[in-house]
Design a protein around this nucleic acid. Structure first.
Lengths: 363, 363
DNA sequence: TTGAAAGCGCTAACAG
DNA sequence: CTGTTAGCGCTTTCAA
């Protein structure tokens, strides 16, 4: 960080006599500065940065010195503007704090980082309206690719996504997987939630239960939880079982789970449910604790299962039966898919990732 | 999305007869396109976008129509390049998947989003080397501000951060809080981890324990956990207590916690520790479960406490004594601080945020 | 192997 | 209230 020379008297350039109104507030070194210091022009430094071998070794050395002396950091905005290519991917998820998505983002971030891409992240709070705003916002940065969660978007958001895709910006929907005709035409990386719901029902039916219930998430636009519920109910009905569907109260998930179980048990004391599935493991653990407090035998009197494979479900006794979704893997695969498309022009093929039903002592 | 007119025969401009070599691969509408459609020049559209009231109502209407017809999305790269101002903040954290940081990021994201800022996120895997690379990478986007975790950075990273701050890019360190002379000169939003460690020791001492242990995180550069450990040991020693310090094995935190307890109990059967504090609640829950399996009475025979206030510790029985850090609040306050600095030029004042010791049944 | 010129899309400054 | 001009920092294209 020594003598950093900067555009010395730009007047030297023989401009016709223009008002010479410069701006340039920041104090950062530019390619110009580096070039000047190295005794070459900007383009040579630019070339050296992208392909050192094209520049003469001796020149390269001087540039290297100048780079260090100036503490130059390339301006990616300018680079992208000039070249049309960025190295940044935008991702939009419902919630960052939710550990499910946090791991997915970690997977994305890890995959992208290895390839030198940056991650622009936005969250929607499970609101389609906010999603739309976020899509608009991140598109302004002209990311190399866009990752959104699920396939339910507002019309306006969908239009933006389609336009982006039409303009050769790959778009991926994560955490979902649908037959081609039901999808929006974007590649999906995830799994089918209705199938998961059906598998949950099947598991409980197989354990001999005939009076089931599904407790849905109280979050309005948590479409994936709703779909698991639909799949659950449909499968249970198809098997001729008695099935109820209710929505958890908003607020703390544990309390909501407790409350839901109480409702189910107290509501129809004559024909009590014997097995319940809940939107995620936090709800399920709440229900499990409530059942224990009521002195119920789990799973003999009431079987309980969740979704997500959260740590807590593994540790409670009885341990919670659950579905393990490929949380990290979804992010990792989405990154791999995008990079293949971006770097090698590979097609965006949908990726169906496996989930697992983990039977434990609670069912 | 109807008739989108685009730069028609740019030859109309009476240029001297230059080679006229255009580029412009993408198919997105530009300000030019909108302007043309609205029958004005680009600058007028630009003005309308930033301050509709300065443009004549009738003109504004035509621009509005053109905006919709073209599906225009402003190019923020170009905007930033021209104006020198972006609306993007970069944050660098050790791990996205770790729920502690996930909530902090959520807080940051929420705060920034409300003000129309985007979040560029990078993670380091608790490695200073990777942090340095990430600082470099995100600085290339010339963010309006930079958020980093903790105060331990590589020399090179520190130089970059200082240079950024010198160039009027606010830099904040989160999750730490030190006296001025020990800090790097960046505003900090967080709390002092040595104090937390001391408080943990004080709590156990107050419960009558004289043979203590601290189980540190096995993650090499988790400086904050190490500092809690130092604070713990120092406070215990100062009180004349017997204190051991060991480092958990890497890998699954629950297993590591179990293993650590086993080591402590089996290592010195003659003078067994009666109370242990662990780097976080996952470790602590592992230890708690191990103690239970050994038939130990908690807290009579062994008291256990953690850090972080994870859900699981609240739900296990006995419930886990822990420290509740201001996870979400750190992000939220960091965002507020940055926005105040960015928008109103407010000074970056360090923010010491309160944590709480939550005594529960495990101690 | 290096350079000159032009342009990416936008906004600041200065006119009118 | 609207337009002209220049320039942000970089890369592309063409030329030497």
């Amino acid at each position: 960080m020594s003598t950093i020379k900067r555009n010395p008297s730009a007047a030297a350039l023989a401009t016709p006599a223009a008002p010479a109104r410069h701006r340039r507030g920041h104090g950062r070194a530019t390619l110009q500065d580096v070039a000047q210091q190295a005794g070459v022009t900007a383009i040579t430094v630019s070339r050296y940065l992208r392909a050192p071998e094209v520049v003469a070794a001796e020149t390269g050395q001087r540039i290297e010195d100048a780079l260090l002396a100036t503490g130059y950091v390339p301006n990616k905005q300018a680079g992208q503007l000039a070249s049309g290519h960025s190295k940044m991917v935008a991702a939009i998820i419902p919630s960052i704090a939710n550990s499910i998505f946090a791991e997915t983002v970690q997977g994305l971030s890890d995959g992208l980082q290895e390839a030198g891409y940056e991650l622009l992240l936005a969250s929607t709070g499970y609101s389609r309206e906010r999603e739309q705003a976020q899509v608009r916002a991140v598109l302004g940065w002209f990311p190399s690719a866009l990752v959104v969660t699920g396939r339910h978007h507002s019309d306006a958001a969908l239009a933006l996504l389609r336009a982006a895709q039409a303009a050769h910006t790959p778009v991926i929907e994560i955490w979902d997987q649908q037959p081609r005709d039901l999808s929006n035409g974007f590649a999906q990386v995830g799994f089918n939630h209705a199938e998961v719901g059906a598998a949950m029902a099947a598991h409980l039916l197989q354990r001999g239960h005939r009076r089931l219930a599904y407790v849905d998430s109280g979050v309005g636009e948590d479409f994936r939880a709703h779909e698991r519920g639909k799949g659950f109910v449909a499968a249970a009905r198809a098997a001729g079982a008695d099935v109820r569907h209710l929505t958890a109260q908003p607020g703390d998930a544990f309390d909501a789970g407790r409350h839901a179980l109480a409702l189910l048990l107290d509501g129809h004391p004559d024909r009590p449910v014997t097995a319940i599935a809940l939107a995620n493991d936090n709800f399920a653990c709440g229900a499990l604790l409530e059942a224990q407090q009521r002195g119920l035998d789990i799973p003999a009197q009431i079987a309980i299962m969740g979704f997500g494979d959260f740590e807590i479900g593994r540790q409670l006794r009885p341990a919670l039966t659950t579905i393990r979704p490929p949380r990290y893997e979804i992010g990792r695969r989405a990154a791999a898919l995008l990079l293949a498309a971006l770097q090698d022009g590979a097609p965006l093929t949908p990726q169906s990732l496996p989930w697992q039903l983990i039977p434990r002592a609670s069912t």
